[in-house]
Each structure stands twice: as structure tokens, then as C-alpha cells.
Amino acid sequence: MSATTVKVEEKLYQNRYRVDAGRSHVSIRDPELCASRCQTRQCTVCCPAGCYTLEGNGRVVLITDGCLECGTCRIVCDEHRNLDWEYPRGGFGILFKFG
């Protein structure tokens, strides 16, 4: 099984979320920086929910709907510190049934 065939969406589909529509709790400060200055873009590999995707033009697109609120992206983005990272508003985000 190669890494690319694993679909994280199928895993996330089992989870329960209350999405705070229009209010993303994590955002990229300067998208240009990801595209031009970040060499590794490790957020696109390390995020366990696959929230970060690398576009063909080198841009990183963030969609937080499947976020598991672990904090990985915030910590791996240590070279450029290019994320605004907060927890979702109370009651929103991932709601673990089992944890």
C-alpha cells in the first residue's frame, strides 16, 4: 500500500464535527510565504487530518473542517511561524464520541 492511496477523508467521515461555518480557527498568515519561501511545507505531510493540500503552483490550501485540533501544524511551522492558531469557539470543532 503506498502512502498516496490512503484516503484520510474516509477516516474523518466516521468522526463527529460541529463546523463553525465561516470561522476557521486556524489560518495561514501570509499564503505567499508558503508558496515562495517555505521549502518543506511539512504541514501538507504531517497534518493527521490532511487539512493542508499542496497545489500545483506551490500554494498551500488550508481547509479546517476535518481538523482534529491536535496542534501539529502549529508546531511544525516553526521556521516561518506562519499560522494563526486558536481553538474553535466553545462547542465547535471535533466532538469525539470515544476519544
Binding site: V8, L12, Q14, N15, L68, C70, F98, G99
Partner: peptide, 9 residues
Amino acid sequence: EMKEYAAHL
């Protein structure tokens, strides 16, 4: 039957 996927630091 897989019913939840979680991640944590």
C-alpha cells in the same frame, strides 16, 4: 467496524 479516527500530541 472503524467508528472513529483521532489524533493527539
